[in-house]
Design a protein around this nucleic acid. Structure first.
Length: 721
DNA sequence: GACCTGCTGCGGTTTG
């Protein structure tokens, strides 16, 4: 086959021949050369189903077979973010390893304790594990880490792009450094990633000390042709008999998607429920078999598995109306079309979603973007008139076509995750000094922004005698206190991210899914859930169970959520769309008219000449031309001055009974670097899992580094003036 | 103005 093939171990070559492959893919050839030819860290970037797993593991397994380890422990470590992904990957690796008699050990919460105990007794082969289960190993078997991983020659991190900036990513990088410290040597890191934007930036996340020594392999994209359309709709029609925008979009989806496999990204779980309900109703009215199904994280595992199976089944046309649950991870095969309802939150997500379509040779990728704007009345404000949803959709599509997407942001302090790792290191070692914690987590580990004084403040907060989380013993070491032990001993400790409390929804003994507590439900109330209609029979507040039976009507449930950050570049492009003259060919007539109208309004309001306009004697609008982080920071600064402020994409609406005339002066002060403290006493700063253990001062520092851009404030105010 | 992800050890009982 090739030189690369010759470098593989015999059983692996035999497996490849057995697969009937005519040749290896380019990315696999390159990965085999890179992995067998050096010991450098490596990122392999290719699309889903691009053969990344084999590219990494064919040469890695070959090395294990050709040069068996003398030390004990798993030969290779794989970390994956989803249990379903680990199950998938274990199946594929078992196929490769079967011939070679190398064990493949999937290890996560659904694997029985018995299987884990047996594997840990004689560790060898490939361990596939979640970050949380690896955390549990450090806490429960801290002393066994060298025995479990003494032979480990590489760690493969799957879906690297999903853990660059997240809390989970910080936890994973911390575990990787703790692994190397426990072994007293470095372990080769290999990241598998989707191609998103500038991959060179990902190198610093894989090996922060030496990003320049991380090799980068990118699959040359055989980019499919892209067919796209943006459709405009008006909601809030005067004529009550006319179909609503929702009804029109559902009808359009039904007409265009029926008979093939598709994904409809509806933007929120509530919106998924609304559209799934409408599409089911249309199928019933037309007396056609059901082929539209909802899919989101609050639906039961059974239902989700059913929808995923149907998508894979070529005999059954299936459209999933979904949230980002179907954006990545598990393989559901190729879909004909991707529809997006409402503007997406990031170009990266849009690209990832579009990658689900047009994978087969000769098939185009198809994107149908639906935009809903409100009908204007004399009372409509400038935000409605500027059609910001449509404008953002266009801006994102333009950036997507240019190949841009959001880069990872420089790291914040991540104090919640730092608390978690402090407790974990103390549990792992049965006690640790402040000095060791600093070296392990801040110098060697991912908390590089955390200075010694900040770490000491965090330790003092945890050491507060009332909290009993940690205490200093006479040996000078920090140990877990009474509450610290209880916290760490409970299995809910391992995950670093927060999850809200929820009710379980049950019909005839079968679980339909879960609902957050913010839905106030009582018997006889009607609700839409899982794309169907229900009547509430009973609510058990103690066991958090809601019993329902099938009903005739209902309202869609609320799910809550946090607003996301829109990148500066997206907002800048939105202003270019508003100020430009180009009419993209992919707009339908309604969308084109809406855009022309928005441009006309933009000029009429005067935004083409100035960034501050007076809407009335009490209210002004400011065009910040900046993303969520900067715009929110300015909003806080103005609120601290006593103004009422509403935020929008790139705009602020500022109201004051008596001080609107001083707005220019206040902005001038802010431009000079002179502003009031941004947080009032009532501002909620607790938004991550371990935040409740920190002091107000530490929470303030954490929020300033993660959610806001205070140093950029003067420049932003200056640009507006 | 949003989405997603994860989880152990032990005691009791039964079976070979």
């Amino acid at each position: 086959m090739s030189q690369a093939f010759d470098r593989l171990a015999r059983p692996i070559q035999k497996w490849i021949r057995g697969q009937g492959w005519r040749e290896l893919r380019a990315i696999q050839v390159d990965a085999i050369q890179a992995i067998t030819g050096s010991t450098a860290d490596l990122i392999i970037a290719a699309s889903t189903a691009g053969g990344k797993t084999e590219a990494a593991f064919l040469p890695l397994i070959s090395q294990v077979l050709d040069d068996p380890a003398s030390a004990t422990g798993f030969d290779l470590l794989y970390i994956g973010p989803l249990k379903a992904l680990i199950t998938d990957q274990a199946g594929r690796l078992e196929g490769i390893c079967g011939e070679a008699e190398l064990p493949v050990v999937p290890w996560h919460g659904d694997i029985s304790a018995q299987v884990k105990t047996r594997a840990a007794k004689a560790p060898r082969g490939i361990l596939l594990i979640t970050p949380e289960s690896l955390e549990a190993l450090f806490i429960r078997r801290g002393l066994e880490i060298p025995r479990l991983f003494g032979a480990t020659r590489a760690v493969v991190i799957d879906e690297l792009h999903t853990v660059l900036d997240s809390e989970r990513g910080v936890q994973m990088r911390s575990l990787l450094t703790r692994l190397e410290l426990a072994l007293g040597r470095s372990v080769r890191r290999i990241g598998l990633s989707a191609t998103l934007g500038d991959m060179a930036l990902a190198r610093g996340y894989l090996r922060p000390e030496h990003p320049d020594r991380v090799a980068l392999l990118e699959a040359k994209g055989g980019d499919a042709e892209l067919q796209l359309q943006v459709r405009g709709y008006i909601s809030g029609d005067d004529d009550q008999r006319a179909p609503s925008a929702t009804q029109e979009i559902a009808a359009n989806l039904f007409r265009n998607l029926r008979g093939s496999d598709n994904l409809v990204f509806a933007g929120s779980r509530q919106s998924v429920e609304i559209y799934a309900d409408r599409l089911r109703a249309i199928c019933e009215e037309e007396r056609l078999p059901q082929e539209f199904y909802p899919h989101h994280a609050s639906l039961s595992r059974d239902h989700r598995a059913f929808v995923e199976e149907r998508l894979k089944d070529p005999g059954k046309p299936t459209t999933a109306v979904c949230t980002s649950t179907l954006e990545l991870g598990i393989d559901i095969g190729d879909v004909t079309c991707v529809a997006q309802i409402g503007a997406p939150f990031s170009v990266a997500a849009l690209r990832q979603r579009l990658g689900r379509s047009g994978r087969r040779e000769g098939q185009p990728a198809v994107l149908r973007q639906y935009c809903v704007e409100s009908r204007l009345t004399p009372q409509s404000d400038y935000v409605d008139r500027l059609r910001l949803g449509l404008v953002r959709s266009i801006a994102m599509i333009e950036l997507l076509l240019e190949g841009w997407c959001e880069p990872p942001r420089p790291e914040a302090l991540h104090l919640s995750t730092l608390v978690h790792q402090i407790l974990s290191v103390i549990a792992q070692r049965g006690g640790a000094s402040a000095e060791r914690l600093y070296r392990t987590l801040c110098q060697a580990g991912p908390f590089k922004q955390v200075t010694q004084p900040i770490l000491l403040d965090v330790l003092r907060a945890l050491g507060d005698p009332e909290r009993e989380l940690i205490e200093q013993h006479s040996d000078g070491l920090l140990h877990l206190g009474r509450m610290g032990e209880r916290l760490v001993e409970h299995y809910s400790f391992y995950a670093v991210f927060q999850t809200p409390e929820e009710y379980r929804l049950i019909c005839a003994g079968k679980e339909l899914g879960t609902l957050p507590m913010l839905n106030v439900l009582a018997p006889k109330m009607m609700i839409i859930f899982s794309g169907r209609r229900w009547i509430v029979e009973d609510v058990d507040d103690r066991d958090k169970v809601i019993v329902v039976s099938p009903g005739k009507g209902g309202v869609p449930p609320k799910f809550g959520g946090d607003p996301g950050d829109i990148h500066d570049r997206v907002i800048e492009r939105m202003f270019e769309v508003l100020e430009g003259e180009h009419l993209p060919a992919y707009l339908d007539t309604a969308a084109r008219d809406l855009l022309l109208e928005a441009r006309d309004q933009y000029v009429q309001f005067g935004f083409s000449d100035t960034s501050i306009i007076m809407l009335s004697d009490l209210t002004a609008a400011i065009a910040t031309r900046a993303g969520t982080v900067k715009t929110t920071t300015l909003a806080l600064a103005l609120r601290a001055e006593g103004y009422e402020v509403e935020t929008h994409d790139g705009f602020l609406t500022v109201t004051s009974k008596d001080r609107i005339g001083e707005l220019y002066d206040r902005l001038k002060h802010i431009a000079d670097g002179d502003h009031e403290p941004l947080f009032g006493a009532q501002t909620n700063l607790v938004f991550e899992k371990f935040h409740p253990f920190l002091t107000r001062d530490l929470l303030t520092v954490d929020a300033l580094t993660s959610k806001l851009d205070v140093s950029g404030l003067p420049r932003l105010a200056g640009a507006i003036l």
